[in-house]
Amino acid sequence: MIDRHPWLDALAHAVLIAGVVLVAFPVYVAFIASTHGPHDFMSGLVPLLPGSEMVANYRAMLTDGLSSSGAPPLGGMLWNSLMMALIIAFGKIAISILSAYAIVYFRFPFRAVAFWMIFVTLMLPVEVRIVPTFKVVADLGLLDSYAGLTVPLIASATATFLFRQFFLTVPDELMEAARIDGAGPLKFFRDVLLPLSRTNIAALFVILFIYGWNQYLWPLMVTTTSSHYTIVMGIKRMSDVADALPQWNVVMTTVVLAMLPPVVVVVGMQRLFVKGLIETEK
């Protein structure tokens, strides 16, 4: 806004507050639900104030799990999700920054073809290629393993494209200066390009961590033993009970716990994240 009117300010605040309430209220209800006993949410009246079962709920879910719906203790599932999210985030960043480096800074035959091949995969997310991908992973014997969970999700056109765009803004003279300074391709990458990409890497890490954490369909396909379940799968299994009412209090306990790691990542990296998205540092 160029003009500042008090009532425009008020309107802006009203819109923002409405947005926050809209987003935050369900989260609040989820948290409240996690502090009540098993029957409170079945009474037809949703309580809006914290109950007394919070400690019991969280302790039960972290230690025993919910055996009736085949969910193991949350600790293991949280660990699996964490590993999956971290491997995907780091793997995607490592591969895409290297491929972007190759595409931008090296002249090799079929360079444009390579770039477009990567670009085209944007149109083929996991859901589209899930059957062939599952076949490949199964044939490689990667079912029920971290490799099977993560490798098919690591190749990333989006991240490659993002790094490519960033590298194109780095002046050529910088590379030439480094060449004259005796830095070979890998040294230039390590000493100049990588430090300059710091904020971009941080921003991507946040996005990719959440992407990896929220994966549902793919883990559901490739894991069959409970020791490799991820937390998002676990939530679904718990709420999906046969011949009984779902225990919303413990489901919501799980949901709250599953929300925490992404929140920690976003809050912890917020400054770098915003910088990486808005800044074109030269």
């Binding site: 003279e173 200066a177 480094a178 004259i180 300074d181 710091r198 030269k282």
Partner: peptide
């Protein structure tokens, strides 16, 4: 040694490191 039009200094390095980089290499 070359001096470029837009200086081509390494933006993330201190002045000292900019001068020293080529020598270290």
């Amino acid at each position: 040694a070359m001096v470029f039009q837009n200086y081509a200094l390494y933006p993330h390095m201190s002045v000292y490191d900019n001068l020293a980089y080529g020598l270290r290499n």
